[in-house]
Amino acid sequence: MIEAKNLTKRYGDKIAVNDLSFRVEPGRVTGFLGPNGAGKSTTMRLILGLDRPNEGDATIDGEHYRDLPRPLQTVGALLEARAVHTGRSAYNHLLALAQTQGVGKKRIDEVIHLVGLTEVARKRAGGFSLGMGQRLGIAAALLADPSVLILDEPVNGLDPEGIVWIRTLMKRLASEGRTVFVSSHLMNEMAVTADHLIVIGRGRLIADCSTEEFIERSTEEVVVVRSPDTEGIAAAVEREGGKTTLGEDGLLSVTHMQAARVGELAAAGGFVLHELTPKRGSLEEAFMELTRESVEYGGTAATPQAAPQAAPQPQAVPEPQGETR
């Protein structure tokens, strides 16, 4: 189990992780989700004792990382940036790590086989592709058979087959009773991999719940109602158990009720309807919406308000290359 208590990390006057507390339980894959620059990697580095928190504390099975007698036996980590000497072969890289923990050579061959690097094990790691580098990092993480795995963006650079492989591997490791903590900035990836989600933005906790709950909450159907008599409709809807919120733009948002039923209630009450629109956001949209305010490096086109203004531009400009068609 990993536990973070009020973790805070500042770099100069920039705050990377802000009073972050959560627990990562064993036996399930916990996704650590947030946009780029949200503080995911920093949080993982704090847990692993590579960086020191300004405030707060992070422990693994109740101990600080630096106090673990044979740390690789407790925690296996894959960091976002590469952590391999480019001049050393994959085998020797793993050998040097194994020797610090007293792990035998047989196990090195096992993990090399497990990640599918047997044929290139004696080649210099500097010549590896991004995907091969990730596989070597995962081999290093699994080397001493740890009970806790911390993986920072493991699907980075992997091909589709590799992505399925790592997904299956993480689920299997969790089913073996291990703690699996995996970061990603891709909501859809986490939706199919993680059982539980910890979502952060700008170093702050946004959500800590099961993936199912997160999806349900985020992609709930909303019926948008435009009417001169929103008050009357809201009252009718709420009598039947629906929930309503009135936006500043005068639009009524209805949840917990189908659009058809809202229309029937409006008709029964004699209310005039100008618009009745059911909406269901995609998971990715919900995630963007949730973390929008906390995006550090967002381009202006990424914000929903700016998108429509940016989109028509290419159409407005006559395209010379179109004439050849």
Binding site: R70, G87, N92, A96, G102
Partner: peptide, 23 residues
């Protein structure tokens, strides 16, 4: 996995591997 006793000797052995394995 064959986990033996950890200690400074292990770290020395690992550093020796690191030095000799870089061309």
């Amino acid at each position: 996995p064959d986990i033996r006793k950890a200690g400074f000797g292990r770290v020395v052995l690992s550093e020796w591997t690191k030095i000799r394995s870089v061309r």
